[in-house]
C-alpha cells in the first residue's frame, strides 16, 4: 500500500514543487544572465539582488485581471494553456533525478516510474503539447495569434523529427528505451554520449532550442513581428500558465539532454584518482548542476544570436538537421553492426 500509493504521491508532490521553484528561479536567472551579458544589473529591487523577484512576479500574475476576449471560443481558450502545462509536467514522470537511495529505511528510486519505453514516452508527450499552442492561436479568434500558432506547430512538428532521430542513435547504442538503463550504459562504457555522439548532441540541442521556441528560433512569439504570437490574447493566470509551460519545457529539454547525453546523475571523472571526491556529492545534485549548465547555454545563445526567419528555420530543419540526423543513425548502425560485433 505504502509503496503503491504513498511513495509515488510524495514523489509527485516533491517533484512538482521542485520544478515550480526551479521555473520561478529560471526566470530570474534568465533576466540576470541576459543583464550580465548586456552590461546591466537586471532585477535589483525586490530583495537583495532581486532574489525575491519570482515571488513578486507570481503574485502579480495571480492578482491580475484574467480577461477573456468577447469573441473567443471560451471552452478551447481555457483548455489550451492547461494542455501545454500538463504536457510539460507529464514528462518528468520518467526522468531519473538520481540513483536509488535509502530513505527512512526504505529503498526509494529518485524517479517516478521507470517506463521501459521512457524515451518514446517523452517524445510522444512532447508532441501532445503542440495542441495547446495550436488551439490557443485558433481559439483567440485574432490574426496575430493564428499566425503565431501556425508557425509554432509547423516548427514543432518538423523539429521533432530531427530530435527523435537523434534519440534513435542513442537507442542503437544502449539497446533500451529506459532512461535508467541509458544512464547505466553510460556508466558502464565510461563515456558520456555527448562525446560519443557529438553530432547527435548538436542536433538535439538545436532541435531543443527550436522545440522550446527559444532564440534564435523564437518565431512563434517573435515580439518584433507577431506581437506575442499565440498567447497575444491571454492575460493574468492563463498567460502565466503559458509562461510556466515555456520554462518547464526548457527544463524538460535540459533534463533529457543531461540524462541522455551527459550521464544523468553520474559524477564526472570517476576514473581520475585525485578527483574521486567528486563522487561524494549526491547524484541528484549532479543532475541539478548539469541541468542548470544546459539551461545556461540556452540563455547564452539567446543573448548572442539574432532571430531566424520562418522559411529559413524550416529549411534548416528539413534540409540540414533531418538529413544529418538520418545519416548519423545510419553511420552509427553500420559501426555497431560491422565493427563492434
Amino acid at each position: 500500500m505504502v509503496d503503491l500509493i504513498v511513495v509515488p504521491l510524495l514523489k509527485i508532490v516533491v517533484l512538482i514543487v521542485a520544478v515550480l521553484t526551479a521555473v520561478a528561479y529560471m526566470v530570474l536567472l534568465e533576466r540576470k544572465v541576459q543583464a550580465w551579458v548586456q552590461v546591466r544589473l537586471g532585477p535589483m529591487r525586490v530583495g537583495p539582488h532581486g532574489v525575491l523577484q519570482p515571488v513578486a512576479d507570481v503574485l502579480k500574475l495571480l492578482i491580475k485581471e484574467d480577461i477573456t476576449p468577447s469573441r473567443v471560443d471560451r471552452w478551447v481558450f481555457t483548455l489550451a494553456p492547461i494542455i501545454v502545462l500538463v504536457c510539460a509536467f507529464w514528462v518528468f514522470a520518467v526522468i531519473p533525478v538520481g540513483p536509488t537511495v535509502e530513505l527512512f529505511g526504505r529503498e526509494v528510486s529518485l524517479q517516478l516510474t521507470d517506463l521501459n519505453v521512457g524515451l518514446l514516452y517523452v517524445v510522444s508527450i512532447a508532441s501532445l503539447g503542440i495542441y495547446g499552442t495550436i488551439l490557443a492561436g485558433w481559439s483567440s479568434n485574432s490574426k496575430y495569434p493564428l499566425l503565431g500558432s501556425l508557425r509554432a506547430s509547423a516548427q514543432l512538428v518538423s523539429y521533432e523529427v530531427a530530435v527523435t532521430m537523434t534519440l534513435v542513435t542513442i537507442i542503437l547504442l544502449t539497446g533500451s528505451l529506459s532512461f535508467n538503463r541509458i544512464v547505466e550504459v553510460q556508466r558502464d562504457m565510461g563515456v558520456w554520449f555527448a562525446f560519443l555522439q557529438p553530432v547527435a548532441f548538436f542536433i538535439y540541442f538545436v532541435g531543443g532550442l527550436a522545440e522550446t521556441n527559444r532564440a534564435p528560433f523564437d518565431l512563434p512569439e517573435a515580439e518584433q513581428e507577431l506581437v506575442a504570437g499565440f498567447h497575444t490574447e491571454y492575460s493574468g493566470i492563463r498567460f502565466a500558465l503559458f509562461f510556466l509551460a515555456e520554462y518547464t519545457n526548457m527544463i524538460v529539454v535540459s533534463a533529457v539532454a543531461v540524462t541522455v547525453f551527459f550521464g544523468g546523475w553520474l559524477a564526472p571523472f570517476p576514473n581520475v584518482g585525485w578527483l574521486s571526491w567528486l563522487g561524494y556529492i549526491p547524484g541528484w545534485m549532479w543532475f541539478v548542476i548539469k541541468v542548470f549548465g544546459v539551461l545556461y547555454a540556452f540563455l547564452w545563445v539567446r543573448a548572442t544570436f539574432p532571430r531566424y526567419r520562418y522559411d529559413q528555420l524550416m529549411r534548416l530543419g528539413w534540409k540540414v538537421l533531418i538529413p544529418l540526423a538520418i545519416a548519423n543513425v545510419i553511420v552509427t548502425a553500420a559501426v555497431k553492426v560491422w565493427w563492434l560485433s
Binding site: 514516452y121 510522444s124 508532441s127 501532445l128 495550436i134 488551439l135
Partner: peptide, 21 residues
C-alpha cells in the same frame, strides 16, 4: 506500453495535428 506510446506519438501527436491544421 510500446503500442500505447506509438498510438500517442503517431495518431494523437502527428496525424491529428495535421487534421487540426
Amino acid at each position: 506500453e510500446f503500442l500505447a506510446v506509438i498510438q500517442v506519438l503517431v495518431y494523437a501527436g502527428g496525424i491529428m495535428v495535421l487534421y487540426l491544421f
